[in-house]
């Protein structure tokens, strides 16, 4: 069975600490086989680093003995993987059909206006990331906005200010 190649040098950069690479290395090392495990490893890597920058992708590629382009191809294919760091709080607006017919697009516009960024972007201070996501299956509560793990159901445009302000206040 193919095993990981651990002659790979661990990069050490300011934002990507060595400890995290070591943690990832340990995870890969613990797998019975690395055959077909790329997606599983990337899930773990994203869990550890929060996102999958080029350095992490290359590290995984080297460890599995595959071209970096192949790893990049997989990362860019799946919407769950992100190559940009995300903000402290992630605002996810459900764009499933049920939420859409109940006005989710207007909710996104309102949030975007309020925090001054578009979907899939992060505020300059790194506080909020705005994301459009596919159905989270809470269609009974449409339209749905999630901030981190907290679900807000039946959201109206005028509720947005209160919801987002509460996170700012908490911070202050």
């Amino acid at each position: 069975m193919p095993k990981a190649n651990f002659q790979v040098e661990i990069p050490n950069t300011e934002n990507l600490p060595k400890e995290k690479f070591n943690e990832l290395k340990q995870y890969i090392d613990g797998l019975k086989s690395t055959e077909g495990a790329l997606i599983q490893i990337l899930h773990q890597a994203q869990e550890i680093f929060g996102y999958l920058p080029k350095e992490v992708q290359l590290f995984v590629a080297r460890a599995l003995g595959m071209p970096g382009s192949e790893v990049c191809g997989v990362v860019s294919f799946y919407s769950y993987f992100t190559t940009e760091p995300v903000g402290k709080h992630v605002i996810s607006v459900c764009m499933g059909t049920a939420c859409f017919v109940r006005g989710a697009d207007k909710i996104v516009d309102r949030i975007a206006k309020k925090i001054g960024i578009g979907p899939e972007e992060t505020t300059k201070d790194g506080f909020f990331t705005l994301k459009n996501i596919r159905c989270i299956g809470a269609c009974g509560l449409a339209p749905v906005v999630m901030v981190d793990d907290k679900v807000y159901g039946r959201v109206k445009e005028e509720d947005i200010d209160d919801i987002l302000d509460s996170y700012r206040k908490e911070e202050a």
Partner: peptide, 23 residues
């Protein structure tokens, strides 16, 4: 086996490729 967010993976041949760690 975990998916990673791709609608096309509901198609069985695409799903199998995804399970093999590919696009």
């Amino acid at each position: 086996k975990y998916g990673a967010g791709a609608f096309v993976c509901g198609e069985e041949t695409a799903l199998i490729h995804s399970m093999e760690g590919k696009r």
